[in-house]
Design a protein around this nucleic acid. Structure first.
Lengths: 194, 194
DNA sequence: GTCTATATCGTGATAGAC
DNA sequence: GTCTATCACGATATAGAC
């Protein structure tokens, strides 16, 4: 399938929107702000997109689908649960360093989705969390993990890496390799030295 | 100092605002929404508060000051660095379970502060992070912590507990004691069983 | 495709009666 | 102290000329 010029322009608008939404929030970004960033008049953008909400949906569901397909990949791999979980955390971190603005918006601005989209998005998240919880549960039963509450482990892992999307920049002097290794060390080995 | 009736009413309004701001975001909450929640007409609230921004400031700086004073306490205590850090994490978690909406707003809606307040808030956060980083640095030099990048450790710790403010409810079947212990186990001992 | 002009609505905040 | 009425503004989105 060939991408039409119109589609490319559309994707550019959505990408710029992600940056602004991350920076100033969805509610704090006006279509005029976005138009200026894109280099069009506000009205002209409506030739490429249907509404502001549609932009937010594009960003949120693109990221959600990426998360889900990454998890599916991990589930189907033949590794120990510990290796699976580590691999997934690496994928999450990697996504944040490559699609920072989009991930940030999907994680922080999804509340602004319109009613229908909001319901679907929440459902996707919930399914994702359940599948990940099952993975942690299985690993604990296999004796690979500490005996801690599954929900606590689930959310602590997911939450622990959330700062990356806000903080990491290519010029900050930390290579993604070192970043991933340091985080994995803390989460799986513990910060305390024995 | 005796609290006047007006002050009590004012604090009630700010408390209800925190709940709504957490739920729908600062931008997504109108003064009319808040008035309905409080049981007043929108105009009547202006007898107790000066502006919407003033409410947000009240919430954000109250929490910021609590964070700072807790850190000061920890710094002055005579404990190992490891014990200090664990105690601080416990204090953070405890604050989230007791002042969930306020902490949530301070952590997620501070971007909406007016220019002056925003500058001051950022400065407070930055000072706090520097002092906490120094504590981690010292612990690492004392050989108590793993050799990981200090910034990574700092943000991973702070971030790892952020979900509590969104998720924890008294009726969810996890006592705060168990919650704290599970999180501390993961962060300091590691999720992986040796 | 991009613009100007504008419709329509919801916002924060104020004035002033009671 | 609480209300009704309203102002001034900025928002999303559309109509229609070019």
């Amino acid at each position: 399938m060939i991408k039409k010029k119109k589609d490319i322009r559309r994707e550019f608008i959505i990408g710029e929107a992600a940056k602004l939404f991350k920076q100033k929030g969805y509610g704090g970004t006006s279509m005029r702000d976005l138009a200026e960033q894109v280099g069009l008049d506000a009205a002209s953008m409506y030739h490429y997109i249907k509404s502001k909400d549609e932009i937010l949906q594009g960003i949120c569901f693109d990221i959600a689908n990426t998360y889900v397909s990454q998890l599916t990949e991990i589930e189907n791999a033949t590794q120990s649960y510990s290796q699976k979980l580590k691999a997934l955390v690496r994928l999450h971190i990697h996504l944040m360093t490559t699609k920072g603005p989009e991930v940030s918006v999907a994680n922080n601005e999804w509340k602004s989705l319109s009613a229908d989209a909001l319901t679907e998005f929440k459902s996707l998240r919930s399914q994702y969390e359940k599948r990940l919880a099952a993975l942690i549960e299985a690993g604990a039963e296999a004796g690979e993990f500490q005996q801690v509450n599954t929900s606590v482990a689930l959310f602590t892992l997911l939450s622990a890496i959330r700062w990356v999307e806000l903080w990491w920049k290519p010029d900050r002097g930390i290579a993604t390799e070192e970043l991933e290794n340091s985080i994995l060390t803390i989460l799986f080995q513990g910060l305390e030295r024995k």
